[in-house]
Nucleic acid binder design. Structure first.
Length: 581
DNA sequence: GAAGTCACG
DNA sequence: ACGTACGTGACTTCA
């Protein structure tokens, strides 16, 4: 019906027909037609300033309709498009949800996200349209994904919908996709739109003080070394330390043959060398200054005056989220000077607190539950300090006889279990030599036999099936699990143990985020969820709601999924993120 | 753009 | 006898 209309422009490129839908008769017909379709793919047309100028839609291979916003075809059309019954196929729906929200439009239709669905099929693989078109459609596209234009995008994602949907079912991921990832995307969109308040004046002050410290240390370094050089250059620093000053007999080198000046190496050398201490001091201060103190203020939105991170839902191979522009999942906490930076993250105004809710030892609880290691489960049930009780168990002594050092060793082994422990790695992390590390690990397995069985079971499952699974059935494909190269195979075996643990913890916090948001909505809570940092959620809490919010968050986080161990959550609040810890 | 380093869980 | 912890992102230097 469009072909005969004089008003439409028909373009052909690569067999793709692009039909412009104009004001008047063709638009009216088009609207009726859209409402009869079952599935439509779309791609939002944005200006360089990220303003919405139109939309491309596709419901038939190689035919794309272009609709530009005009006085007649306005946002009402976009709103009804995202409200009707027909399923909308998109690529990176979260970014569209945010843009539409900006225009007060919410997505009510059933949706399918190409990128997100493939993340569940194979998280390690590329989810770019170019890769997916090759894998599922056999198309060789000689462009990189950034060069694809909107009409091409809507055409490709229309064709990708069915094969991806089929693959989701085949890989048993549809439930996880529909019940977790799709609802979560909307939660993340709200959190990103909300943003977090930053105290710029505090950071500016901190910047001045920190900068002075740095200059002083720089001067001291130049004085001792007898020359000025770029301390931030590992190459130059290595030459000063290991050639000019000869501070080590057998300097460790990196894989490219350069002297390694990494922290763990310099820390050892610093024990009896004040110059190296100064270098480490310089390094840590310049890191804080460049990555956080001076950078975060530049990321504040001019319109909202807040920091809006972007949570990436399709990057981490285990099912975790990641955070970019800026990364708010690696804000310093471990050192005293690092902690200062957390004070810059503040509530939206005086009527709010910043509140943090942390899962306590969630990964160890997960491994205790999955392995059904009764001894460890009991420690969690009794709410004991898990590293202390591990030390008591492994060294066969009462809890109150455990030394600091024993607890610290137990802690390192506990983490080692999660990562895939080795005697070498353990001896690297402790003052134990390889022999002592080996015997510590053996004793550990002797006392926690089911943990050892669990590890073996994961590896044999992976060898059998080629993947491992989380508590919600999220898969990580381990193609190297049967590799003839031992190094590669061992790495895959560590992944077979680690991925279900890290991934199950990710499943759990994702579920709780969805439930918390739902509760906030139904109880008309004004407080907002702002950040997720793997085992922690951060909230802007309206003061009158404090007790109610604490109850909701604790209940939802602790009861979201029944494991054979209790889940425990620590909640704190205050006038900044540091106080909320 | 890769390499090295280091911030977090 | 081999080389190692699991998962990320950002910054600086340098070819």
């Amino acid at each position: 019906m469009f072909e005969n209309s004089e008003k439409e422009i028909i373009l052909k490129e690569n067999n793709l027909i692009i039909q412009k839908v104009q004001d008047g008769i063709s638009y009216e017909l088009f609207k009726k037609k859209i409402n009869r379709k079952k599935t439509i793919s779309y791609s939002l047309h944005k200006s360089d300033q990220n303003d919405l100028i139109g939309i491309y839609v596709c419901w038939q291979k190689d035919i794309v309709y272009q609709i530009n916003l005009t006085s007649k075809i306005n946002l009402n059309f976009i709103e009804s498009f995202f409200s009707n019954n027909c399923e909308k196929i998109s690529y990176n729906l979260k970014s569209d949800v945010k843009l539409l929200k900006h225009h007060n439009i919410s997505v009510k239709s059933k949706v399918f996200d190409i990128q997100l669905s493939h993340y569940l099929i194979n998280a390690d693989a590329s989810h770019s349209l170019v890769s997916l078109s090759k894998k599922y459609l056999g198309l060789e596209i000689n462009k990189n994904s950034k060069e694809l234009e909107n009409p091409e995008i809507s055409n490709l994602i229309f064709q990708l919908h069915k094969p991806l949907h089929t693959d989701l079912i085949k890989k048993n991921q549809l439930d996880l996709y529909e019940k977790i990832e799709i609802p979560l995307l909307k939660v993340l969109a709200s959190m990103e739109i909300e943003g977090i308040n930053l105290d710029i004046r505090f950071l500016n002050n901190l910047s001045k003080k920190t900068n002075q410290k740095l200059i002083k240390i720089q001067k001291d370094i130049y004085e001792i070394s007898g020359e000025e050089f770029n301390i931030s250059s590992p190459k130059q620093l290595g030459e000063i330390l290991f050639e000019k000053m000869k501070i080590s007999k057998n300097p460790k080198k990196t894989k490219t043959g350069q002297y390694s000046t990494a922290e763990d190496i310099l820390s050892n050398l610093a024990k009896n060398n004040d110059f190296v201490k100064l270098i480490l001091k310089y390094r840590s201060i310049s890191k804080l200054l460049n990555t956080y103190i001076n950078s975060l203020p530049k990321q504040i939105s001019k319109s909202t005056h807040r920091i809006h991170t972007n949570f990436l839902q399709t990057v981490a191979a285990t099912g975790r989220l990641s955070s970019v522009n800026p990364n708010l999942q690696n804000i310093p906490i471990r050192t005293n000077s690092g902690k200062e930076i957390r004070k810059a993250f503040v509530p939206r105004n005086k009527d709010f607190f910043l509140m943090a809710a942390d899962y306590s030892q969630i990964e160890l609880r997960v491994i205790a539950a999955l392995s059904k290691e009764d001894n460890m489960i009991r420690s969690f049930e009794k709410n004991e300090d898990i590293h202390l009780s591990t030390a008591a168990t492994v060294f066969n002594i009462p809890l109150d006889k455990v030394t600091k050092q024993q607890r610290s060793h137990a802690k390192i082994v506990n983490f080692g279990i999660i990562y895939g422990v080795s005697a070498f790695g353990l001896s690297n992390q402790t003052d134990l030599n390889i022999k002592e590390s080996k015997s510590l690990i053996e004793t550990y397995y002797l006392k926690y036999p089911k943990l050892k069985q669990f590890i073996e079971k994961q590896i044999s499952f992976a060898r059998d099936r080629g993947y491992v699974e989380t508590i919600l059935g999220r898969r990580r494909i381990l193609r190297d699990i049967n590799s003839s190269n031992n190094i590669i195979k061992s790495a895959a075996e560590r992944n077979a143990v680690n991925a279900p643990i890290q991934g199950s913890a990710a499943d759990i916090i994702k579920m709780s985020m969805i439930n918390i948001q739902k509760e906030f909505f139904s109880k008309k809570i004004k407080s907002k969820m702002l950040l997720q940092i793997h085992d922690e959620l951060v909230f802007d809490v309206f003061k009158p709601e404090l007790n109610q919010v604490i109850d909701i968050v604790r209940y939802q986080m602790e009861n979201v999924f029944k494991l054979e161990v209790p889940l425990s959550v620590d909640i704190n609040y205050g006038v900044n993120w540091l106080e909320a810890h």
